[in-house]
Amino acid sequence: MGPDHDARNTRQAWAIAHIFAAMSHDHDHHHDHSELSETELRVRALETILTEKGYVEPAALDAIIQAYETRIGPHNGARVVAKAWTDPAFKTALLEDGSKAIGTLGYVSRVGDHLVVVENTPERHNMVVCTLCSCYPWEMLGLPPVWYKAAPYRSRAVKDPRGVLADFDVTLPKDMEIRVWDSTAETRFLVLPMRPAGTEGWSEEQLAELVTRDSMIGTGFPRKPGAPS
């Protein structure tokens, strides 16, 4: 950055870097350093310059992107969950090695090497937090919601998971255990929610419609049959 840029623009550029951090994970190779695709480099370059020159406000840009946060990425997570609900052998394989099992499906071209699937049961509810935002499995879930990256959510989720869940209108029986999984650089988590009652005989496609992003983070439940999508 040249000397003609004031500190504010530099801060904005750095803020952009953090926004982009959510998509910087290298899924295809193991390296000890980060890697960006040629396209990502060009997008970052343009966005940084436009910000420094004052053509683009990161907050305004973020607002546009957030408006589409649930519409980015292939959203394979719902299909994976629906398959696990209908295919016991796949479910076993998925819980054993998430990345490997998802890789066998063929339609997921990029999934992290260490995607761990944790199963919700009548006794235990799982919830995922991320302290390093580069580790969110957006190919599975689409973009993370804003609150997911917010420091208050992350710290409260660890200290007071029941309280955080209550904020999302998720109330669980008192004796149900809640496990909080903290994503790291190497391991990312996907919650396998419980299959809703009243869906006996449903096809995978029908079931996938019920699987919400929040249910795969553990801050929500799948839709109930008949509820509006």
């Binding site: 950055m1 550029a13 750095w14 870097a17 953090h18 982009f20 951090a21 910087s24 994970h25 290298d26 390296h31 000890d32 350093h33 980060s34 890697e35 960006l36 480099l41 970052r44 370059a45 940084t48 390093l132 935002c133 580069s134 580790c135 790291t184 650089a185 190497e186």
Partner: peptide
């Protein structure tokens, strides 16, 4: 940005 990615450890936010 390429340089920044290169010196950033895997999994950390990349900053320019």
């Amino acid at each position: 940005w390429d340089h920044a990615a290169d010196r950033t450890p895997h999994g950390k936010p990349i900053e320019l």
